[in-house]
Design a binder for these strands. Sequence first.
DNA 1: GTCTATACAGGGATAGAC
DNA 2: GTCTATCCCTGTATAGAC
Lengths: 225, 225
Amino acid sequence: MDDLDSFGPGHIGSYQAERRARSRPLPVHPKGIRRRREILDRSLEVFAERGVDGTSLRAIGEAIGVSHAALRNYFASREELLVELLLERDVRSEASREEAESVFGHLTNTAEANSEIAGIVALYTVMMGNAIQQAEGDAREYFTERFELNRADLSSRLEEELSTHGLTATEDLGDVAALIMAAFDGLQVQWLLDDRVDITRILKLLERLLLASARPADAAPGQSV
Amino acid sequence: MDDLDSFGPGHIGSYQAERRARSRPLPVHPKGIRRRREILDRSLEVFAERGVDGTSLRAIGEAIGVSHAALRNYFASREELLVELLLERDVRSEASREEAESVFGHLTNTAEANSEIAGIVALYTVMMGNAIQQAEGDAREYFTERFELNRADLSSRLEEELSTHGLTATEDLGDVAALIMAAFDGLQVQWLLDDRVDITRILKLLERLLLASARPADAAPGQSV
DNA sequence: GTCTATACAGGGATAGAC
DNA sequence: GTCTATCCCTGTATAGAC
């Protein structure tokens, strides 16, 4: 019912574990757990209203009624808080992926769900920009690991799906996965700046192109379609 | 010999004119002209060394030996300065585009040139993130207009190129243009985070897919390749 | 025209009191 | 766990020297 991502990570990934070790310990008492949830929920509300750059720790704290310093009992930094929001969305996206009938089915579902919540798409894109301007940092690690996992996952799911239809790929599926992910992310940016860009329609175009390039599994290489 | 962009704008665009009217007047005296150039050049050096977010006005001023306030005689804001760098790169890219033999030839040329100057690619991507988190602003206008112009330009160049080879498109070329641009930008992000992602190779994959979808201009619709 | 000096509002991060 | 107070950084703005 939400999220923007290009496919949630198939599994959570080693980065997750490392990050957990580095960051604030998860609260164990009910009050702490509620507080942490409240911070995450309010953060989403605040940047839905004021944009990503308007979402300062002070603004979030103000929305809850605590000082900005209090937030840092739960999140070591503002960046960590925002990455946590992206991770939560990945988990939900992963759930919806398991219901989807095909790779591109999930992609277009995601694109359509995203169109209703531009806020999180914007957060994703802004964080992507933040990620690459750092030598290290939570956002950079998040995206690096995410891309790597998704390339591998998507690649194997594509292979599986092709063989189900009695097809064999004529192109490197790792490259195809990178291409699909790049197209998805790039189209989201264009859509954010101009909503006439129809992500779903263009993804279906890409799907047609890729399907046409596959060949029957029993045919000799060279004769496509 | 440089730049990252996905195709410089075919023409400069109305935004350019409006922006000029809004910003600081261009210097007319030799000293001012030299100073403005120096600021732009040093800016590139500074964020090559310290990253985009390390490129504060104070850092640039320090590299030149002037106060940060002096920079604002030439650029109304930090954002305007950075957008100016992107515009300069577009102009140079446009020149190289005219030498390229084909649409994808220019794209792969650009990708290869970019691989030597990760700095400007990072600037482009970071500014893209900045652009979408603003309701208005120089960066947002730059990217909105850039994408719109490039979709139109690329679309018409693709049509031209297909007809040169006696081919007709079976897909909407506006959508194809958006797809190519999205793939290019998205691949750049992935490459910035993991240089094992081979932009050129994947762009060639996309080119193959698109070429295979075209059909002879005299053939009836339905029979592809 | 060009530049310095200075002030301001806002950001994230941090130390230490309670 | 939360606070206040503080630090240092940022972009922006203005006044006035030369």
